[in-house]
Design a protein around this nucleic acid. Structure first.
Lengths: 154, 154
DNA sequence: TATTGTTATACTCTATAACTATA
DNA sequence: TATAGTTATAGAGTATAACAATA
């Protein structure tokens, strides 16, 4: 009898009007479609985040990965457990600090990203952004990049 | 020891680059700031959504409100309980269907929206969008409005 | 004394199922 | 028989606190 799959935020399409609300609406749609797309591989948005971080930042401790995702280290234990059981990451030891793991992508993890996950998310972005012309898209990207910068207070 | 307040989505600023990821980053920042701003009035994003929906769509049943927010009716019971206890909404009876409530804004609810909550969210939007010139902002709004339309599949 | 990973535990959020009163 | 609201309950998700190994 549920109305939800397992979405993070409510779908308040009613509030639209200003750029702020529209932003939320569009982003929510992207997120929902991404979660939906990843479901086929039994991955959550967060799992994908771990893999992408490891791909771009090499071996990291569990705590460091959690810090970048705003997830507690105690929560990371299970997240990494699952990814390790699926053979997508491996817990190596950090030779400089034997308390910490050096979590790294396996070949399988790297391949899954390149062959499945990245194309999947590209496709989702394409579905949503495809309504714009290439020129409009460049404009949008430029404006959003201005907004996405660091510290910005009124 | 937590890394979170109670955010919905992880903060993966690392993935930025394309419009799709930037969109998520900016929207996440808006959401975090909104939750933060509403915390002062001990309201969650969802509570605000209920009030806004009632403001724009008049008295509605709990189930209908839940449908618009993608929240189950069993969950709505407590949401409305709290808002009612705070005197922001009232459970009237739907005279056409005595099974259903006709939940409506009270004067206090309407006043809180007008005097506190709407200004608050406007301020948050201003903080994030304020980096753009008025012209850029109009452009952004126009582009997002194109994206926020209904059904759009590749 | 501080930190990484771990575990046990508790708390929050939300849905499912069963119940009631209506329809 | 079906529906709105309610309640009890269960599950997912995630944090806090305490512990072992290491720094």
């Amino acid at each position: 009898m549920g109305a939800n799959g397992r979405e993070p935020a409510p779908a308040t399409r009613l509030l639209a009007g200003s750029a702020g609300w529209l932003l939320g609406d569009v982003a929510r749609e992207v997120t929902l479609r991404l979660e939906e797309a990843l479901r086929g591989d039994e991955l959550r948005w967060r799992d994908y985040g771990v893999l992408v971080i490891l791909e771009s930042a090499g071996p990291l401790s569990q705590q460091e990965i959690g810090r970048r995702l705003a997830v507690d280290r105690s929560t990371m234990v299970h997240v990494i457990d699952v990814l390790e059981q699926r053979g997508l990451v491996a817990r190596g030891r950090d030779r400089a600090d034997r308390r910490a793991y050096a979590v790294e992508l396996t070949g399988a993890g790297r391949a899954l990203l390149a062959e499945v996950l990245h194309p999947l998310t590209d496709a989702v972005h394409e579905q949503v952004l495809g309504r714009l012309t290439p020129g409009e898209r460049r404009t949008l990207t430029r404006l959003l990049a201005r907004l996405a910068g660091p510290a910005r207070d009124a």
